[in-house]
Design a binder for these strands. Structure first.
Lengths: 140, 140
DNA sequence: CTGAATCCCGCTCGATACTG
DNA sequence: CAGTATCGAGCGGGATTCAG
């Protein structure tokens, strides 16, 4: 997983990888996929547990996200013919491999979100975000 | 950057990180941000070079993406008062730190996109994607 | 409890035209 | 060359309702 290419120094761009970036982004870049995966990283969960844990997701989006993940082989769905019905979702090995990516993103976010917030606030003062920033400032 | 938490074994979910995941996803999970950053990873580029290199991006989206990136301190914008005008965009250190994340995603995509495509195709045959797959199958 | 189906709003994004 | 302004279609996604 680590360092198939070197990232330091002036290297050529990888145009042939752009398609893959777009592909993975189209797949996991939507609003709920990442959160669902990270929520499942701790172990199998039922539908209602997922909905409770993800906090803000609707049934529609949860169902849709789970379907996509199952279709791509990132999670498995196990339905128990009981009453009341019970369905558990669990990451596959492929899904677990994505956790590393999610984790890298999360760690980057944790490490830099303060810095970004600071930059953003500073930019609004210096006028980089003119249009919307000014509108919001005058509105608020 | 590496291993702030361990990822193997049954660990507790990190609900407190969900907000960060959402935050970074809202920031870099859009359609063009990642590609712009990866395109800039090779070095400074001008506006038109970016547009030519990203392939498919419109002026509107390019401008918007660049503005957001600049506002967050991920890139710098340098305008030269010449004729014809010239503007160069370059990653900041903060922006460069994101390349690792982008790279991790790209490598994951390269490594697994074939597997995912296979799973997806197999799922359609076994009927997991019933609704939409059936509709598309009957339509096509 | 676990979903499927429907309605509908808002926002994103793309195309176009215009400016400095 | 490097943007800005405006308009319109498409769809993501939330609330609600219905079914097994």
């Amino acid at each position: 997983m680590a360092s198939a290419r070197q990232i330091s120094g002036p290297c050529q761009a990888w145009p042939e990888d752009s398609a893959f970036i777009r592909e993975v982004l189209d797949r996991i870049g939507d609003k709920w996929t990442m959160l669902t995966i990270s929520t499942l990283s701790a172990g199998p969960l039922r539908y209602s547990d997922l909905q409770a844990n993800i906090a803000g997701i609707s049934q529609r989006m949860l169902t849709q996200t789970l379907k996509h993940l199952e279709r791509d082989g990132l999670i498995t769905r196990t339905a128990y013919a009981e009453v009341p019905p019970r369905v558990e979702y669990e990451l596959t090995d492929l899904g677990r491999s994505l956790i590393e990516v999610v984790l890298a993103m999360a760690e980057w976010a944790v490490a830099h979100h303060g810095e970004i917030a600071g930059n953003r606030a500073a930019s609004e003062l210096t006028g980089i975000g003119r249009a919307k920033a000014a509108a919001k400032a005058s509105a608020g």
